[in-house]
Computed example of a mutant assay.
Amino acid sequence: MTKQTVGVIGVGMMGHGIARNIQKKGWPLAYLDHPGNQPSDDLDADGARRFDDASALAAACDILILCVTGSPQIEALLLGPDSVTAALRPGTIVVDCSTGIPSATMKAAEAVKAVGCDFVDAAMTRTPKEAEEGRLNLLIGGDAATVAALTPLFEAFSENRFHAGGIGRGQTLKLLHNFVSLGSVTLIAEAAACAAENDIAPEVLVDCLRRGGGYGAGLDRTAPYILDGDVTPMRFSNSNARKDLTYYSQLVEETGTSRKVAEGVRGALDWLVETGHGDEMMPTACTTFRKKDK
């Protein structure tokens, strides 16, 4: 694949790592200047083009990567009155790395295809640390030939890639993953709070879980907070977690399968957000859940 110009909208905690690794691997890079971006002096220093207008950026690139908060932002970018869709050049590929509702993703894809372009959803898992290291997991939905053509670019910022099927299936797999992943962290946080209130030493709790059935990525990311108050391995806010569980609940409602466990997890996240802890990173719930009379 010729190294085409890649545009990025959403140079935040995850998007900055994506953009930086794309640039390091030799793709010409452009990005949208936005207040939500991480510092981008390093991108500028290595020749990235900074755009103030999303449509101008869309018109200037061959591949447009979207790494924004969720479905409302994707809909605004691709379906709203100020969408960038009309500015896309025929043949441009739009890659949505955000977390969204699959049915909304498919509507956005239809709008992109209507102007002679292609669309792939490539939702991410892992954390900003792995994003900076170029070691994300990508959960991909799209035409097999288009995904194959994009693979050299995906390899620039990901370690593992899972092609789940057609458009929207990457987002579906992401919601399934996040239900399990974020649900595990929420469960561990509640257990840690109960353990602390019952005088179980944090190191004993963590060691017990690590050597038994409680071990997994959720524990690895939560244990540093339980032991030392460190949230670095899990820089994911309670508000974002609630958003993802809300999306999962909508997916399950549309699918018709059970969501009783999801309702419990979402209820816990609702409480965290509604009591003023939405902007805190998820591991801090180990402390917050110690509050009585919830």
Rank of each mutant, 00 (worst) to 15 (best):
A217W: 10
Q171H: 14
K113D: 03
D118E: 13
A48T: 05
E159S: 01
A87N: 15
V112E: 09
I22P: 00
V261I: 04
T222Y: 09
S181L: 14
A59Q: 12
V147F: 05
V115Q: 08
A195L: 13
K129H: 10
H277R: 03
R221K: 13
L209P: 01
D270N: 15
A109K: 02
R89F: 13
G12M: 00
V6D: 06
D42G: 10
G91K: 04
A156W: 11
Q171C: 14
G278R: 01
D53V: 06
A191Q: 05
E155G: 06
L175F: 06
C61M: 04
T257D: 06
A201T: 15
N178K: 00
A241D: 15
A149Y: 00
I9K: 07
K129R: 12
D143C: 07
M234C: 14
T275E: 12
I65P: 00
D44V: 12
T105P: 06
E253Q: 01
A149E: 09
A164Q: 06
G134S: 11
Q38W: 05
D279F: 07
E110F: 09
P28Q: 08
G168C: 15
D293N: 07
D293I: 04
D207G: 12
A285P: 09
A217Q: 11
H177T: 08
R259H: 00
D41G: 04
G216N: 09
A60D: 15
K243G: 05
I167G: 01
Q171N: 13
S98D: 08
M1N: 10
T151K: 11
E75D: 12
A111S: 04
D118H: 10
E263C: 07
G214E: 09
V185Y: 11
V206T: 14
I74A: 09
T284P: 04
T287R: 03
A285H: 09
S98Y: 03
D121T: 02
T275S: 08
A56P: 07
A241P: 02
A19C: 13
V68Q: 14
F157A: 13
S158D: 04
G170D: 07
I9S: 15
V231R: 12
V180K: 04
E110N: 12
D46H: 14
F154G: 00
N178E: 03
G15A: 01
V11D: 14
A108K: 03
M282A: 00
I226H: 10
G166D: 11
K25R: 12
Y248R: 12
V265N: 06
G91W: 02
M282W: 00
A54R: 07
E197G: 00
C97F: 00
R242H: 10
V206Y: 13
N37C: 07
G212L: 15
A148C: 03
N240F: 14
G36Q: 11
V68E: 15
C97M: 13
V261Y: 02
K174R: 11
E253C: 02
E263W: 05
E190T: 08
L153C: 02
T92H: 03
L88K: 05
R266F: 09
D293G: 08
I9G: 07
G141Q: 09
I226R: 08
L139N: 00
R161C: 00
S83F: 05
S184K: 09
H277W: 06
G134P: 13
G100D: 14
A262E: 05
R242D: 05
I140D: 00
G141D: 06
G267N: 12
R211A: 14
D33Y: 02
G165F: 07
M281Q: 11
T275F: 08
L79K: 10
R126H: 06
M13E: 04
V180F: 08
A76K: 10
V206D: 14
